[in-house]
Design a protein around this nucleic acid. Sequence first.
DNA 1: CCCTCAATGCAATGATATTGCGCCACTGGT
DNA 2: ACCAGTGGCGCAATATCATTGCATTGAGGG
Lengths: 157, 157
Amino acid sequence: MRPESPDALDETDRQILAELQADGRITNVELARRVDLSAPPCLRRVRRLEEAGIIRGYHAEVTPAALGFEITFFALVGLETQKQTVLDRFEALVCEWPEVRECHMIRGGGDFLLRLVARDTAHENELTGRLTSADTVQRVQTLQTIRTAKDEAGVPI
Amino acid sequence: MRPESPDALDETDRQILAELQADGRITNVELARRVDLSAPPCLRRVRRLEEAGIIRGYHAEVTPAALGFEITFFALVGLETQKQTVLDRFEALVCEWPEVRECHMIRGGGDFLLRLVARDTAHENELTGRLTSADTVQRVQTLQTIRTAKDEAGVPI
DNA sequence: CCCTCAATGCAATGATATTGCGCCACTGGT
DNA sequence: ACCAGTGGCGCAATATCATTGCATTGAGGG
């Protein structure tokens, strides 16, 4: 029947993903040239990848400092319990803060790793204060980034 | 003379950044419509933002699992010393690993926070083992992500 | 009040995206 | 071995978009 699953990716698909991950605004004509296809089938492949959810979207990478966000930091947050409703409530709370850019639940439960941005140290302090004083929060360890040697959004292809 | 710095962003620029951060493949015509400009000045603003380094690039967001990377995890790595050459060497080392997607130096020195992707738990174990046995590495704490409630690449605008 | 400069909009031109269609290769069944 | 059926490709045509040149407009300075 089918030698591979219907959503399997061949080498050309991987090349397309690699190119679009590296430059999301490349023209379809140029993309087709790089993966050695003509434009129409190349575009059809891109559409298929988008519709399959393999490409979730395209984003401009904006320098945070240009918008006044000089500080990026992480916060390791421990909650008092591991009860699901408590975890859910904490997630819902911080997800509403625009300064929280990522919220990952880690390990067995009760712990979260957040990535946040702040305009300055006062803003940062305010954010950590808000975290510390939030309901059910037991401890907050902030990890201030001194410098970032690598920051690639995607995955290796 | 100048009411604001030459690289200052007005409200239209911020709108452009917000739109391109949300959808990096939007056409210039559509972008111009949303920020209430005609196409040429809109494109000129985008080019200016790109050349000023405010827009660093555009990237497709690819689902890691589609490429076989089922696991994302973080690693807190402590080195034995804070000597600059040791820090630099560690950074150079892990930056060469494709599975390391982010490498942030944190706090006073000697500590790094890494974000990594792995195909499976065996791959993850191999990576943490490589970290643990790397030269000058004192300790490695892995933070396995159970679930991710929020993962926004950019900054609030 | 005039001048200057920066930014805009319009119009024209060259590229690109998108669709329809025919062709070829491969697969499975006869 | 032959014959559909299927999927993917390239070509060609058309709609849309990107990009450039140029005239106009409005705000601030002289």
